[in-house]
């Protein structure tokens, strides 16, 4: 245990920080994932509206009715719930807010984690009971 007999030295106050990293500076076009803390650039291959982390596919509930309006007061974490396919064959992620259970859909980006996407696509087929009952009900 250290001895505390030394007199407290005068400590300089912390300097005021005037460099802003996010608002209009070098990290204005980045966000940090709430799930895995990865620093993600908003520039994504294949999409102009990246809203989820390419590594863990987690998103944040910031939009209300219109995508990009930033009017939601929730701010909760949105976990990927499922995958859907557009009529042109494009995959879309469905997110659900863990705070208010709101759903939203977003296109996948070109650098999204393929393993996480395939795990999400295979999730309904993991349970054998449902698959076997579907096969038994076939005519």
């Amino acid at each position: 245990m250290p001895r505390r007999t030394r007199r407290e030295q005068h400590r300089r106050n912390q300097r005021h920080k005037d460099v802003l990293h996010t608002a209009g500076r070098h990290r204005a076009h980045d966000f940090r994932c709430v799930g895995c803390r990865l620093d993600v650039s908003l520039v994504a291959p294949g999409t102009a509206h990246r809203n989820h982390c390419p590594n863990c596919l987690t998103s944040l509930h910031v939009d209300h009715r219109i995508p990009g309006d930033r009017a939601a007061g929730c701010g909760g974490r949105m976990e990927p719930l499922g995958l859907t396919v557009r009529t042109d064959g494009e995959w879309m992620l469905i997110h659900q807010c863990l705070t208010c259970a709101r759903l939203s859909a977003n296109r996948i980006a070109g650098d999204d984690n393929a393993l996480a996407l395939v795990r999400l696509a295979l999730r309904p087929l993991q349970d054998r009971r449902v698959a076997s009952s579907a096969l038994l009900s076939m005519p």
Binding site: T84, V85, A121, P124, L125, A134, S137, M138
Partner: peptide
């Protein structure tokens, strides 16, 4: 059940 299973395997039919 057929419609449900069809929808569950639809992403795997045409993966990106």
């Amino acid at each position: 059940q057929l419609m449900l299973m069809r929808m569950a395997v639809r992403p795997l039919a045409d993966p990106p």
